[in-house]
Amino acid sequence: MSAGRAIPIARRLRHDRMLLIACLSATTLAVAVLSALLISVFIQGLSSLDWHFLSSYASRKAANAGILAPLMGTLWVCAICGLIAVPLGVATALYLEEYAPRTRLRSLVQLNIANLSGVPSIVYGILGLAAFARCFGAISTDDPWTLGSPDSLFFLQLPFGRGVLAGGLTLALVVLPIMIIAAQEALRTVPKSLRHAALALGSTRWQVVWKVTLPAALPTMMTGAILSMSRAIGEAAPLLVIGGVLLLFSVPENLMSDFTVLPLQIYNWAGRPQDDFHKIAAGAIIVQLVLLLLFNSVALFIRHKLQRPLQ
């Protein structure tokens, strides 16, 4: 049956070796890129890091500039984003996984969420500007409805204007699809048998969800939450549309305050031609990365704690 010309084994092994070399070089390159990025940022930025840098406002002179306003802005905006996006994402995931009948409508909603996760974040900025900052023009921005005094912590107004709340809500829209998809995956990891056991004891659907499914899925959901919040911390484009790039000399006092965030401050400094500003941009990047790392490790720690009783 052996018609045909034999392919020399040496050639086949050469292909084999070439593939391995190609894979190894690609992987090495990926690692090298990350190292180059971190090293170049640290070399440029380390010298500008000190207490003055963390505790001062912006300045026209690079040497005097600090990141207090963007740092606080990032914390405010991300807190709002997390408070909105995480519960909303979990609720949506719960509905889709535990309640929704498997109809065409559900797969359409699912496809819609996948699509939302692919919408460029700057487009969310445009939506946020129209919906939150301007209330679709239903109420004039020049004559807003207000609640409380502008100096108080609890000051509110409609439309929200270009403040912290509008920024946080916009970011929540950006990360919501990521959060939903992650929470859904977490819920899918809970074995069906666990749910059946609870149902067989006469639990209502919600009791199954609240007492069995959610606690079992919680550690994995935390990972999803970390993922979406890391994305939120680094987002700049939608906030640029909402708030613009501001040089602020104050930290946010309430939900309506003007704000800027670290990535926008980095953008502003990095875009200037002078080397001095590149140095403080690199300094701000280091702060940003440390913040990210801190956030990830706290979340990992909590997740670790939560996982223990289940093992």
């Binding site: 049956m1 052996s2 018609a3 045909g4 034999a6 392919i7 086949r12």
Partner: peptide, 19 residues
């Protein structure tokens, strides 16, 4: 499998598959 080890003409390969 045959394609891994040898180079076949088209008719040869078709015959081999059939057999």
């Amino acid at each position: 499998g045959p394609r891994l080890h040898r180079q076949y003409g088209r008719t040869d390969l078709e015959e081999l598959v059939e057999q």
